[in-house]
Nucleic acid binder design. Structure first.
Lengths: 222, 222
DNA sequence: ATAATAATGGGACATATGTCCTTTTGGGAA
DNA sequence: TTCCCAAAAGGACATATGTCCCATTATTAT
């Protein structure tokens, strides 16, 4: 995965043809370590980010200081697109969970080179529409189902191949699901008593996907 | 308000220049009575709706049969835009709350005439981005604040000029806020005991906006 | 006016969830 | 090994919210 080039990534995601040479020239590859922050809510944004390696955590602090985790992002997701369209300050805080590589695309180049590009506008439209649907789904899910269902959904979504949850801290997990750490623990303990998972010092292993799935139904966190 | 023409409405919302003659020809004005349904979730969609008079209620039934009210729409809002972009079946059910007039714009005309129109794409992009932000805000608000805050917010949002809430049924209100009818009643009763509102047979009058606002802070329902 | 009926309001109770704080555990320092 | 500390788990209690069902009030038909 190391030392790939911008054009390599663009190629991989079938984006090379959409961005003209001059735009590609302006792109910058940036790699950051896990834990480092890309930007914070309230700052002004001048860059669109395309995540190409690693994992990002999007969060937001409420006026009262309570943290909500809004999403985890995986490669090929865009960040800063809403702000690009609305020309507004950054809404959320984004930090790298693992070592992460992004392609930075300055707004001003996009503005100059891409504003009249229907293919690009169409692409952006689809991207943002998709985000909207994800958000809708997440919201419906939160309003509709209690914490246990959401926890199960999260576990299933986060362990697509592997059965052991990678190092998401339980606190982050609680903040994503929208509950307290205490309550998350309670629910996880129940799951363990049912024999659906094994928990050991914060690492969770899903041992009975089928039961989890049957009990819980759908799934949100992409 | 009666007997306005399509071009009259387009004029009013500064949309006449964006839509070429041929597209405007294909538009249809439709007026429906309060309570009637425009379409239901799961159906196929072939029309974009521009709401120009009245009020629409957007709702969704969960697989378990629980109803969520997702939004109330007021003039100049679009409905069916997400489905247009994603070319997918209708996600939600939309019905008129009051007598309502919409402009129907068939997808196929848009497809043929507008796909390459950057102004239109830009416009759609902004519309949907705005929807995304509204949804985000609503979701954060739901996750962050308890029912009483949401109720206060709703009351404030729904009585911008008038102090008496128009005839939203309390059941709809509960479904929009995402709580049970019973609990909504409880909260409203508290508000009444505080002297912030007066409730009489389902009609609510806000008597102390300031206190409501102070107690509750922000606001979502547009 | 009176009775029947539907809409509204509320009591009682169970459960889900949050907050605060204590206990337990595992791992490293001495 | 033993002790100490931070991370993790859990106990106790308060509150928020949901469910079920009954009481109350308005509305309509007779």
């Amino acid at each position: 995965m190391e030392n790939e080039t911008i054009s390599g990534y663009l190629e991989r995601y079938h984006l090379s043809t959409m961005f003209p040479e001059r735009v590609q020239q302006a792109m910058q590859l940036e790699t950051v370590a896990g834990g480092s922050r890309l930007f914070s809510q309230g700052e002004n944004s001048n860059t669109l980010y395309l995540l190409v390696e690693g994992k990002l955590k999007v969060s937001r602090l409420s006026p009262e200081g309570k943290r909500l985790i809004l999403a985890f992002k995986s490669p090929f997701d865009f960040v800063g697109d809403i702000e690009y369209v609305r020309k507004c300050p950054l809404i959320n805080t984004v930090e790298a969970v693992t070592a992460t590589t992004v392609i930075r695309i300055p707004y001003d180049v996009l503005e100059i080179e891409m504003t009249g590009n229907t293919e690009w506008l169409q692409f952006l439209l689809e991207t943002i529409t998709h985000k909207f649907e994800l958000k809708s789904h997440a919201m419906n899910f939160s309003l509709l189902y209690a914490v246990d269902v959401r926890v199960a959904s999260y576990l299933l979504a986060m362990t697509p191949d592997d059965t052991t949850l990678d190092s998401t801290s339980l606190i982050d997990m609680a903040d994503l699901i929208g509950t307290s750490y205490r309550h998350l623990n309670r629910v996880l303990k129940q799951f363990e008593e049912h024999g659906w998972i094994v928990k050991k010092r914060g690492k969770i292993t899903v041992t009975d996907r089928t039961s989890l799935l049957e009990q819980m139904g759908q799934n949100i966190y992409e």
